[in-house]
Design a protein around this nucleic acid. Structure first.
Lengths: 190, 190
DNA sequence: GTCTATATCATGATAGAC
DNA sequence: GTCTATCATGATATAGAC
């Protein structure tokens, strides 16, 4: 396993996360990342192989944690509900609430990663699109199916549209959030 | 006036609009733009002076039209309403509806500009932020004030939050819209 | 595992002929 | 107004010493 988290590796990931957020992927150079991480330029290429692979590693580290957490929350909810359908607000909270709460998690990048996420989910780059599709498919399928069951009277296409718009609102919130802007999760619970 | 719209100037603007949308600002080179516009590299710098100025020109051309149209729609609505407050759905339509309908306007870039807009409004670059702040302030103030008057029982801060979330949902829609995805404006009219 | 040094190339911009 | 030619800079990536 070559992905053992040596200490420099982590510093590089942290620096890349901050810089990709601030300046975008093309707007960030490997030199900046190495400098910010107080590592050597060649070391960054040694650890990740290429700039693209580094970006993927940045996302993968956080998304694995986030989506694992979401699945864990859904598991707990479903265990409690028995064979009853979950409430829509529960499913929304498992998906969006877990995302927003990630900003308060120590060791998970806090607001920095959320803002990077909001920024890059608006990016039509093929690499990023396929990466997200792979990391998200499990959670998204499960949430969609839970919502179908929870709202049997609503057409499935309508549910997908609502998810789509909520995602847009939430990601914009992630990007533009200021410290102390408070908890707006309540807006989603109707 | 050096900004007379010569024909090459327009071709360069169109090419830059497409490429900035597809690859982002840093991800697009002046050489690509010149090639796509079938113009010379030096001509692009002659007409706009710098890459940054070209980006600003791309946005300015469309935003001036869009915000002018929004103000025109508001004027017409208020003339009809006399001294009565506009309905919330009217104001929403003037702001968001005009934006979405822009995608069907000939000679206004169609979907391309809308997707560029959605992409760059998530960009924290200082240049872009200040450009948008300048171009949008009139329309935004007027819509906000109309909403305050239209919904006197709703706290002003709550109205701002709702605008914020609607903007997120709308811009995401602009970015990811596919041909034939239909009219979802109805979702906003409650 | 980490760094020095460097190869190779693309970029934004401009000077000056026509 | 438009071209050719060129500059200085900074980009990714790698070969090879330690």
């Amino acid at each position: 396993m070559t992905t053992a988290p040596t200490e420099t590796r982590i510093r590089i990931l942290d620096a890349a996360e901050r810089l990709f957020m601030a300046n975008g992927f093309e707007g960030t150079s490997m030199r900046q990342i190495a400098s910010e991480a107080e590592a050597n330029l060649a070391a960054t290429n040694y650890h990740f192989g290429s700039k693209e692979a580094l970006l993927q590693a940045v996302f993968k580290r956080r998304l694995e944690w986030l989506n694992g957490e979401r699945l864990r929350v859904l598991d707990a909810m479903e265990a409690e509900a028995g064979d009853q359908a979950l409430k829509p607000s529960q499913i929304v909270d498992a998906f969006f609430g877990t995302l927003l709460r990630m900003g308060n998690e120590p060791n998970q990048g806090g607001q920095t990663f959320l803002r990077l996420l909001g920024r890059n989910l608006s990016n039509p780059s093929d690499m990023i699109r396929t990466l997200f599709a792979a990391e998200y498919s499990d959670v998204l399928e499960r949430c969609k199916n839970a919502l179908y069951r929870s709202l049997p009277e609503v057409p499935k296409a309508e549910i997908v549209w609502r998810l789509h718009f909520m995602l847009g609102a939430t990601l914009r919130h992630c990007r533009h959030r200021r410290a102390g802007s408070g908890d707006r999760l309540a807006s989603f619970r109707r």
